[in-house]
């Protein structure tokens, strides 16, 4: 058994904190809390980079830390918060997979990261192995978050968190060129801008940031389209609950932002049953 010295322990602890915050991101149900957790993760990343800079005696890492802090702990969370406020979004995160299930998949993903890192770093010190395993776990958990959340804001946060993991891996390795750091940071900002514009576009088109609304517009012949066709044929159904619910949905439709209109499936079914080509309007419209 090897037990490290204090500097390495602190670096580890910061990496562990980032992993923990990735799980917190997966656990949260409210958009606001997700953004807060993401800001905290950015702050911890900045601390980790600064600590590595002090440990390795590499002053350029302080710059990385500064960039991480300003961009990820301050600017991007503020921008995300502004988006949420301006779009008057749902406060809850819609999940494609339940919270408990996604946490379990998350642990499986961490196990995968460990299994991957172990054989390829067989010669390295235990500390480097653990650091790499932590960073890869953060990357994979960010990816998992993008997969399991239907809300575009959460997906953006997942992408940013994935990038946090990349930076964490990069700062742990001594002698990472500054150019790479800077270009990564610039790339992230560009990605954020693109994602933000994308979110706005989705919202403008579909009045929702639920990416499930996009599925309908995928190429023909997908199962989604087939299912939509099937629903078309079933449209004149006599008093099936689907049709009944659709009726209920239609009645509730005039009240914009009403109870039924807020439930995506109800509105969807209504629209399918009626065969209306438009996409339902749900969510609190201004």
């Amino acid at each position: 058994m090897t037990f490290g010295q204090l500097p390495y322990d602190i670096a580890h602890l910061l990496g562990g904190a980032m992993l923990l915050l990735s799980f917190v991101l997966l656990y949260q149900r409210r958009v606001q809390a997700v953004i807060n957790a993401f800001a905290m993760q950015g702050g911890v990343l900045a601390l980790a980079a600064a600590w590595q800079g002090a440990m390795q005696g590499a002053p350029e890492l302080y710059l990385t830390a500064l960039i991480a802090f300003v961009a990820k702990a301050v600017l991007i969370p503020l921008a995300l918060r502004a988006i949420v406020r301006r779009m008057n979004l749902h406060r809850s995160v819609e999940t494609a997979l339940g919270i408990g299930a996604s946490m379990m998949v998350g642990v499986a993903v961490v196990a995968l990261a460990i299994l991957v890192v172990l054989p390829i770093t067989a010669g390295a010190r235990a500390i480097a192995r653990e650091d790499l395993a932590l960073a890869l776990s953060v990357v994979l958990l960010g990816m998992l978050m993008m997969i399991t959340r239907r809300n575009a804001i959460s997906q953006v946060v997942g992408l940013m968190s994935l990038e946090n993991g990349l930076v964490l891996a990069a700062v742990g390795v001594a002698g990472m060129p500054l150019v790479v750091e800077l270009s990564t940071a610039a790339l992230v900002l560009v990605v954020f801008v693109v994602a933000g514009v994308f979110v706005f576009q989705i919202r403008e088109r579909f009045d929702s940031v639920d990416t499930a609304a996009l599925e309908k517009h995928r190429a023909e012949g997908t199962w989604e389209a087939q299912r939509a066709d099937g629903a078309w044929e079933a449209q004149p159904a006599e008093g099936t609950w689907e049709a009944q619910r659709a009726d209920g949905g239609r009645e509730a439709q005039p009240a914009e932002g009403g109870r039924d209109a807020q439930r995506p499936e109800a509105a969807w079914n209504a629209q399918r049953a009626e065969g209306r080509p438009e996409v339902p309007r749900h969510g609190g419209l201004p």
Binding site: M1, T2, G16, V107, A111, I114, A126, I127, E130, A133
Partner: peptide, 8 residues
């Protein structure tokens, strides 16, 4: 799990 990694 992490402990298993770090202690080899």
């Amino acid at each position: 799990a992490l402990l298993f990694v770090s202690t080899g």
